[in-house]
Design a protein around this nucleic acid. Structure first.
Lengths: 218, 218
DNA sequence: CATAAATATGAATATCAATTCATTAAATCT
DNA sequence: AGATTTAATGAATTGATATTCATATTTATG
């Protein structure tokens, strides 16, 4: 081994310039692939999306994807992580500019709506992973899911026409809200001791109250 | 072929009795397999549950499952369909015994809680497929999901201590509720024209109002 | 009890798609 | 320009598991 092989005198600017060029190239490729993956995951869901699919959309060969991402999973996570961070940064910024909890809440809601309007592919990925309302889920396509929804909606509509529930929101949405409140309670009730000890009637009462009267302090 | 092979004179009762016996046997096996499948799907989720797993749990051989169910998918759907129908029947019955929308709503909530308390395996299957709060989802395990949740909870807690939001419910639950209201609105906003035309600020206002004041008619 | 019919078995097969890697092409350097 | 390094390709490999089916076992029948 001679002294040159230790590379003691590589000019700093050149080395970093070439590093930058390489890095820039990497980032461009990654961005291409992420863009394609976002679309394919949004349309097909994680399991039915194939790497070939994604590569084709990005106009690369299958193997190329693996030059930029560890595997399918980490590609998926890159998307989610990047997008959620983006959202959190926006929220932090905008909420920071407002005083008072009420105003912060307003901004919070508004900015989330804005974000998902601009990131519709990501919204689909997000709800596929995270939400009960997905149209394309295994279940949602089935008759039984529709039957359930119809039943719930009918109940809400009856309550609306009896004047118990406000009419300025869709019955379908209201039933989604009720369902999600119930599910969130069942979860907590299993996770935490405090709720596990209360009895069903009491929990049902709390849910009813939250649902009808909201979370505002009285 | 002789005339006997046409089976023209099989006594009716015997034939139907043997059919019944066979049918009873089928139903018992199906029930065994469904019970096992319910458990395995609940613990591992649809994709990671294998037929072998399920067969083993039911104490049958792999192939036996296919004598009673078309394939993995239809086994899965049998469970969901059976259980949702069971729930709907209970709800129909109980709601039918009560007059008035408010009372019906109370019964509705209570019976769903009761049902899921008795069917915890099914609850897991249901939320794996359908809900945002699943602990074991691909996403929930990740740091970014936790980061998001922490951020949301902090906001709610601040609002609670400022007296804007009631303190008698967990901040985590309240943030789940808010999130689900927002997502349900985005969904409808894409599905239907009516909402698509309204602007973001207006939708944000409706969400805020629903969230704070609930669905009760004023 | 012997024979036939119905059930169950689980190893072998089929399928599907993630991942690898030998080869080719492009970019960079001397 | 030729040599060398870096990047891209996509067919072949691997792995995982759903599904089948020839064989064995159990149950019913005469």
């Amino acid at each position: 081994m001679n002294i040159n092989s230790l590379n003691l005198e590589i000019p700093q600017e050149l080395a970093s310039a070439s590093l930058d060029r390489k890095e820039r190239h990497r980032l461009l490729r990654k961005a291409d692939i992420i863009r394609a993956a976002q679309h394919v995951f949004a349309v097909k869901g994680f399991h039915k999306a194939t790497i070939q699919d994604i590569a084709l959309h990005a106009q690369y060969a299958t193997g190329t994807v693996y030059l930029y991402f560890e595997d399918k999973n980490s590609l998926y996570f890159s998307i989610v992580e990047e997008k959620i961070n983006e959202l959190l940064n926006i929220l932090r910024l905008k909420i920071g500019q407002v005083k008072g909890a009420r105003g912060k809440l307003e901004v919070f809601i508004y900015e989330i709506l804005r974000f998902f309007e601009k990131n519709q592919d990501f919204f689909r990925i997000f709800v596929q992973e995270e939400s009960p309302w997905l149209i394309k889920s295994r279940l949602a396509k089935s008759t039984i899911a529709q039957k359930r929804k119809d039943f719930f909606i009918e109940l809400i509509k009856a309550a609306q026409s009896e004047g118990v529930i406000r009419k300025d929101a869709e019955a379908g949405q209201i039933s989604d809200i009720l369902e999600s409140i119930i599910i969130s309670f069942i979860f907590n009730w299993w996770e935490e001791k405090t709720l596990r000890e209360k009895d069903l009637k009491e929990i049902a009462g709390i849910i009813m109250d939250l649902f009808l009267s909201g979370v505002k302090k009285k």
